[in-house]
Structures are given as C-alpha cells and as structure tokens.
Simulated scan of single mutants.
Amino acid sequence: MDSYANLGLLRLCKQVCNSISEPTTGLYNNLLRILAKFEDYNDTHSVYQEMALNFIYPDEETYSIVLGSCSSLLDVVNGKTIHGHIVKMGFESFYLLDSALVEMYKTFGDCGDINDLSYWNPLIFAASQKRDAKEIFWLYKRMRMEKVQVDSFTAINLLRSSVDLGSLEAGRAIHSVVVVTGLRPDMPVNTALLTMYSKLGDLYNARLLFEQMPEKDCFVWNVIISAYCQSRYPEQSVELLRSMAKTGVRADLFTVLPVISSIRQLKSNWWA
C-alpha cells in the first residue's frame, strides 16, 4: 500500500485494503493517513463508514484523522456526529483527540455566523477543553456585545468557569442570566448551579436550589453532602445521608467518604 501511495495511486491503495480478508484497525488507519496526506478528505469519511460496516473498531488515531478531514471540509454535521461516537466509545479524554476536537471546533467557529450560538459555543467548547476560564468569560462578554443569548451548554461552561476562577460573584451573575433569559433549568443546568454554589461556599443558595430540584440523583446528593462536610457542618451532612436513604437513592463511595469524615468530626467534638 505504501508503495502505491508513494506513486500517488490512491485507488490502488484502496483496492489493496479491500483485498485483505481480515483487515485490522491499523490497516485502515494507514489508508486514512494516506488519504489525508493527499487531501482526499471525502474518501476518509467513506473509509470510516466502511470500518463500521466491517465491524472494525476505530481507535484514537482513526478519530483524529477523520476529525481533521471534517475540519478541512467544514463538515459540521459529520464532525459533531463523530464527536458523539468518540464520547460513546470513551475516547474523549485522550490527548490526541482533545487537540483534534479543539482544532475542529475552532475551525467551525471561524466559519459561522457571529450572531448565532453555532459560532460561539464551539469556541467556548475549545476553551473549556483547555480549562481556560478567563477566555470563556471573554467570549461570553463578546457574545453579549453581539446580543447573543446563552443556552444550556453556554451556561454550564460559564458556571464551571466561575468555580475555576473562585468567583462567587461571577457564578451569581450567570445564575441571574439563566433566570432573566428564561432558560429552562433542566437537570444539567441545575446540577451545574448546585455545584457552583456548593464549591464556592454559598450553602444557603446551594440548599435552596437543592430543595427546589424536582429530580435528585446520587451525584446531586453527593454535591450537597460534600458541601456541608467541607464547610464543617457534620450534623447536617449525616442528616442529609439519612434523607437520601429515605428517598431510595443508593449511596456510593463518594457519598460515604465525606460522611465518615463528618462522623469522626462529631466524635472529636463530643470528646472535646
């Protein structure tokens, strides 16, 4: 295959790949590298689809090459679809793919409409992958100048960035934006708000929000219990664990460890 590639005979490269009775991921990756080298980006996606039809599992190199092709073609639809595949396959934390996703979304952002969220959210996603909270808020400031309203994705990233900056004031401001713009407070937004208030030490608003949440999964209970533990309110954290048990939500290791710490603190206070 490499010999044909050196001569620029891409059609013969594909024929060699298709002639192998038991092709491997490495074989397909080699073909994808060749196609990308010769900027045959349309065929890279065809080969990716062929892998799926032949039950050949892609790896991080496969996804990196295909994402690069989507960037070059400005193919937003397939780019987002492949990002979904990456998440489902559990590859999102790989550094190689992290870089490829950031570059792809930056490219999509550069070609979008500045008055539309489809322009801003890819840029915010790219900044969030780098955990660059200052850049996210700078992008948000630019969004407001263009009179673009936030959606759930934007709000969640802004709330996480407030925590990264250690700014309760910024977090409260984003909460106000969520309320004023009429953004539906779904489970992910509510969880991000609860996490922000809990981690930044505003137990009053954290508890208020917690009590108002119509759905409370194990993660939500863990956030509020940990908040009380970290703020040195052991009695309340133990009481919350009892309430959690009554609702039928099963505790996990992240629930139990902070409560054990609280019980030790209670014993220490009692002996003191």
Rank of each mutant, 00 (worst) to 15 (best):
A272L: 14
N18T: 05
S261P: 06
R232K: 12
S72C: 13
P214S: 07
L158F: 00
L10I: 07
G248T: 06
Q236E: 12
D151W: 06
G84D: 03
Y95L: 15
A227G: 05
I56G: 10
Y95W: 09
A206D: 03
H175I: 02
C13L: 00
Q149G: 03
E211V: 03
P58C: 00
V223I: 12
T154V: 05
L9Q: 09
L165P: 05
V77R: 13
Y63Q: 02
D164K: 06
E39V: 09
V150P: 04
F125V: 08
L96E: 15
A126Q: 08
K130D: 14
K37G: 09
G84C: 04
V220A: 14
I124V: 02
R242K: 13
Y228T: 03
Y228E: 05
L74D: 06
A100L: 00
L139P: 10
L73W: 01
S71K: 11
N121M: 05
I136H: 04
V249A: 08
F91I: 01
E235D: 11
I225W: 02
V180K: 08
V66F: 11
W221R: 02
Y63P: 01
E239W: 05
G171A: 02
S243K: 15
S64T: 08
Y228R: 03
E103C: 13
S69Q: 04
N54K: 15
N190T: 08
L241F: 04
W270L: 09
G166E: 00
S176C: 15
